[in-house]
């Protein structure tokens, strides 16, 4: 669905169901340079099972208008504005990669608005490889190729997409190239690299939090994810074997199972 946030027309997938304000809201926040489509194997399930879902395209990404936001802090404030814009007072947040930084910061800033937090491939900081950052800021497609290489585990490099006929690396690459690379991936990578408040923000989080990590994640390794989770009181951690950073696609069913259990327990729907 399309709606306005801070004057810009924003697109969010509602998981194939009409947006219903009577249901609890789950907001999904994508990673650097990507779009709402990375969440298709999680969002549709929740939309058909009692929740209202918004898998956002961040400003300047996917089908959303406006310009990419330049800092994680701005993105965190923007998520709060999204909740206001759709007429809700609270929401459950799910983030992947850069989306974890955004949702951690948002939860720390707006503790009354956020009810549960689910982090996938998250870390307290995501410093960028300087060469990768330079390639992305120069709009070089090689940045996308490198990201797809590093983001998929050894198993994911062979394929094995849960949806028959889809091929991981080329699909992800096409999503990351769907808008101008330097204006999406380049801006996002710089925002990640500049963000230093992740560990401090984590210490302020007092709501139920889940971290899903993967053994073959090169971008946000398990030890970094655990370091973050250790700072969040009562945080749950689930580790997936034989899987890389794109766990929400590489091991979509496993991710959905863990996420379903966590959200339905801590943020149940009455519908």
């Amino acid at each position: 669905m399309k709606f306005k946030v801070n004057g810009d027309e924003i697109f969010a997938s509602t998981g194939g169901r009409p947006f219903d304000k009577n249901k609890p809201l789950i907001i999904f926040v994508h990673g650097s340079g990507l779009t709402h489509m990375t969440w298709v194997l999680q969002t549709r399930y929740f939309a058909f099972h009692g929740y209202s879902v918004l898998a956002l395209d961040l400003p300047g990404h996917g089908l959303s208008k406006g310009k990419s936001l330049k800092t994680i802090e701005d993105m965190a404030d923007w998520i709060s504005s999204v909740i206001d814009a759709v007429g809700y007072k609270e929401a459950s947040l799910v983030g992947h990669s850069q989306g974890c930084l955004v949702t951690i910061e948002c939860t720390a800033r707006y503790p009354d608005k956020i009810k549960t937090l689910s982090l996938m491939g998250g870390a307290g900081a995501i410093p960028m490889n300087p060469e990768l950052l330079a390639l992305a800021e120069n709009g070089d497609p090689k940045a996308v190729d490198l990201m797809m290489d590093w983001a998929h585990g050894p198993a994911g490099h062979f394929g094995g997409h849960p949806v028959p006929g889809l091929y991981h690396i080329n699909t992800g690459g096409m999503l990351a190239k769907s808008r101008t690379i330097k204006d999406t991936l380049g801006v996002d990578f710089r925002a990640c690299d500049n963000y230093k408040n992740g560990f401090e923000a984590a210490k302020k989080i007092k709501i139920p939090t889940l971290s899903i990590l993967a053994t073959d994640d090169k971008m946000c390794p398990v030890k970094e994810g655990k370091k973050l989770a250790d700072l969040i009181e009562g945080s749950k951690v689930d580790i997936i074997d034989n899987c890389g950073h794109m766990m929400l696609l590489e091991e979509a069913d496993r991710v959905l199972k863990v996420l379903k259990s966590f959200i339905t327990t801590n943020y149940p729907s009455k519908n």
Binding site: G159, G160, H161, P164, G165, L166, Y167, I169, N170, T171, M174
Partner: peptide, 18 residues
């Protein structure tokens, strides 16, 4: 059949195949 679909998609540089 799904293995064949992914294999051809990968060789063509495509996102998906049927």
């Amino acid at each position: 059949v799904g293995v064949l679909e992914e294999r051809v998609a990968s060789l063509e540089g495509g996102t998906a195949a049927l």
